[in-house]
Design a protein around this nucleic acid. Structure first.
Length: 425
RNA sequence: GGAGAGGUGGCUGAGUGGCCGAAAGCGACGGUUUGCUAAACCGUUAUAUGGGAUCAAACCCGUAUCGCGAGUUCGAAUCUCGCCCUCUCCGCCA
């Protein structure tokens, strides 16, 4: 949600924001609707003032005078009803429209229509070349007996998988490594609901626009989250925090569910784009300050880079262009990790800052040093998401004999296991 | 799932049709007193929004908000209906 006052003051800014992000929002229509709502509010307020004054007078009258005064109120009452009916129709419409308005991207975000126009900031680590014919993660996983795709599909349909034996250990090892690293860096671990109220989905900006990406438990009015960002960011919704307790730094390991509607046929192979996965997520809630947001975004980006480096994986950092930014993000840095089977970098992390966008929708505020209540800023980034991260781990650390070397950093979480081999499960 | 109780300001809690944006207490903040602290005393202490004033605030006037929504009424925290949520007991259960 953006600030309606700002929309009134500078509608063109929001027209441009929508164009840059290639989203359809009829800003002039919203401005006009807002004007109608405000007119109606003003007349309703005037009528109420009149009505309240008259009621107070009536309270002091007696007998015939009182009866006469009450009789005179009938007409006023009709007018109040008419105006409030109009308002009751207009206000929800305005509210629905405001949920669609696009948060402008920061000036340092490249303008572009899709990921091809995002800008690489740096690349870290060497892209290896193999002196044997490398296998992809599915070939490796099936041969090692740690990934079973057909049975995943049997149980739950396309884009589902089963991990087995050492595959499970590897999967859990990256998550545990991620969780420990992020806790060491000052984030408080949380265990949060992954089936949440719709309000929480709207509040974090995933609804209404991304509604068809979510699994719904309609009977109960709940939605499965696609990321722990949702419950973590909404944790303090409808609260007024003290500035002294900011920033809030939280992390959570959670199950993540994504319908991948509209992605039919895209990334259909392997563990890349799947309906269910697990992820350690980091969320920051900070004071309303651009510089603070920018610096926390660097911090959460660095946290994720440290993890990818610990796994010995080559990656690059991308300044995501406007066309690939979500509705609410001000700026987003993706970490893309090298995936030999794709012969390209694939997104494994996504660090976004939102300014007030989510905080306004969530009514997430704090009281500043002067006692003024302000909306917080929110940010989030992946720490690690698995099994997607298993793609580069398996493919980059494979050996000529089909075994896979376990990165040093994961061994403590795998009973010291150094290699995945045919009989390691 | 069955039965019952209840949702009022930062918290506790009073308030069954107008004098109620709401008693009282606690907490917090400011002040007086004091060698310092404590105590005592005095004062302040919700949010949103429209308008006025202002360089901007302070400030002034209005409107809305006592779980949410609808209704009755000239007038609703208070009466009616629907919904949501919480708690207690019983049942079931990881």
């Amino acid at each position: 949600m953006i600030d309606i006052k700002d929309l009134r003051a500078d509608p063109d800014k929001y027209v441009r924001a929508a164009a840059d992000k290639a989203m359809a929002v009829d800003v002039p229509a919203i401005v006009e609707l807002d004007r109608q709502v405000r007119d109606a509010q003003q007349s309703l307020q005037d009528l109420r003032t009149e009505q309240n004054a008259a009621s107070k007078a009536i309270a002091r009258l007696q007998g015939l005078d009182k009866q006469a005064a009450i009789a005179q109120m009938a007409e006023l009452k009709t007018r109040v009803k008419a105006v409030s009916d109009t308002l009751a129709e207009l206000e929800p419409r305005l509210h629905d429209q405001l949920l669609l308005v696009v948060q402008p991207a920061a000036p340092e975000v490249p303008i572009g229509k899709d990921e091809s126009e995002s800008v690489e900031l740096r690349s870290v680590g060497e892209i290896p070349s193999f002196d044997f014919e490398p296998k992809d993660h599915m070939q490796l996983g099936e041969a090692l007996g740690i990934i079973d795709m057909p049975r995943g599909v049997k149980l739950a349909g396309a884009r589902n998988y089963v991990l087995k034996g050492a595959g499970v250990l590897l999967h859990q090892a990256v998550l545990r490594l991620g969780q420990e690293m992020i806790i060491r860096r000052g984030f408080t671990p949380m265990a949060v609901p992954v089936l949440v109220r719709e309000q929480v989905m709207y509040g974090t900006g995933y609804f209404p626009t991304g509604r068809d990406q979510a699994y719904l438990a309609e009977r109960d009015g709940l939605s499965l989250v696609g990321t722990a960002e949702v419950p973590l960011t909404a944790l303090h919704s409808d609260e007024i925090l003290d500035e002294a307790e900011l920033p809030k730094k939280y992390c959570a390991m959670s199950a993540c569910f994504r319908r991948e509607a509209g992605a039919a046929g895209k990334d259909a192979y392997g563990l890349y784009r799947i309906h269910f996965f697990e992820k350690v997520e980091q969320v920051v809630v900070c004071r309303n300050d651009e510089a603070a947001s920018v610096s926390y975004q660097q911090e959460i980006l660095a946290n994720a880079e440290a993890l990818v480096q610990a796994l010995n994986l080559p990656y690059r950092v991308v300044n995501v262009c406007t066309g690939d930014l979500g509705q609410g993000a001000v700026q987003k840095f993706d970490i893309e990790t090298w995936m030999p089977s794709r012969n390209s970098y694939g997104e494994t992390h996504s660090a976004s800052r939102f300014h007030e966008f989510q905080a306004r929708r969530l009514n997430l505020r704090y009281r500043d040093a002067e006692g003024k209540v302000q909306f917080c800023h929110t940010l989030n980034n992946t720490v690690v998401a698995s099994p997607r991260i298993l793609i580069p781990i398996l493919e980059l650390h494979q050996n000529a004999d089909g075994s896979v070397t376990v990165p040093q950093a994961l061994r403590p979480y795998m009973n010291g296991m150094e290699r995945l081999t045919m009989d390691s499960h």
